[in-house]
Amino acid sequence: MAAKEEANQPKLVPHLVVDDAAAALDFYAKAFGAEEMVRMPGPGGKLIHACMQINDAMVFLNDDFPEFNDGKSSTPTALGGSSVTIHLHGPDVEGRFQRAVDAGATVVNPLEDQFWGDRYGVLRDPFGHLWSLAETVREVDMNEVLAQMASGS
């Protein structure tokens, strides 16, 4: 049977590894309005795959399975942090930021107006992943942005 044409459309999908994927799905729904699309339990109740949609983008996640990763955990907590930040851009950044904090996210950088024109802040979710949230609040000419960067302001 041939795959549906849309199944093979090019896309980039972040794939998060967490401890307690079921709890993570609940958190992401409360914090970011994620809509769960798929939940595939595996042996012992751990989730081998899940898919959710946030801001019309898919995000995959699963429980940590060190046995399939050379015996090493690959959660941000086990690795001592995350080198990736997932960015959510859109209106009502104040409300979206507070919703995530109320759901259990920790503020890394509070929301502030930035020289590049966005109101921007960073959160860490309870599973160790970083999320930046932003809303464009003013249009800024790229020459102004470059001048601000060059001056160190």
Rank of each mutant, 00 (worst) to 15 (best):
A2H: 03
K4N: 11
A7V: 03
A7F: 13
N8V: 12
P10S: 06
L12H: 04
V13W: 07
V13D: 06
P14G: 03
P14T: 04
L16A: 04
V17P: 04
V17Q: 11
V18L: 01
A21G: 02
A23H: 00
L25E: 01
A29F: 03
A29G: 07
A29L: 01
F32E: 01
E35V: 11
E36Q: 13
E36P: 00
M37E: 15
M37A: 14
V38N: 10
R39H: 06
M40N: 09
G45D: 03
G45I: 05
L47E: 02
I48A: 07
H49Y: 14
H49W: 10
C51N: 11
M52V: 09
Q53M: 15
I54G: 08
A57S: 15
A57F: 15
M58N: 15
V59H: 08
V59F: 13
L61K: 01
N62F: 09
N62R: 14
D64P: 04
D64I: 07
P66V: 08
E67D: 14
F68L: 13
G71T: 10
G71P: 07
G71A: 12
S73E: 06
S74A: 14
S74D: 12
S74V: 15
T75D: 10
T75E: 11
P76W: 10
P76I: 09
T77C: 02
L79F: 09
L79G: 07
G81K: 08
G81A: 09
G81S: 08
S82H: 08
S83D: 12
S83T: 11
V84H: 10
V84T: 15
H89I: 15
G90V: 12
P91G: 14
D92T: 05
V93G: 03
V93M: 05
R96T: 14
R96I: 08
F97K: 01
Q98W: 07
Q98F: 08
V101D: 01
D102H: 06
D102I: 02
T106Y: 02
T106N: 10
V108A: 11
N109S: 14
N109P: 00
P110M: 12
P110L: 12
P110W: 10
D113V: 07
D113I: 04
Q114K: 14
Q114P: 00
Q114M: 15
D118P: 06
Y120P: 00
Y120D: 05
Y120G: 02
L123H: 02
L123Q: 04
D125E: 07
P126C: 08
F127Y: 13
F127R: 03
H129W: 15
H129N: 14
S132T: 11
S132A: 15
S132D: 14
L133S: 06
L133D: 03
A134L: 11
V140Y: 05
V140G: 02
E144H: 02
V145C: 11
V145G: 05
A147E: 14
Q148P: 00
M149T: 06
S151M: 04
G152E: 06
G152K: 02
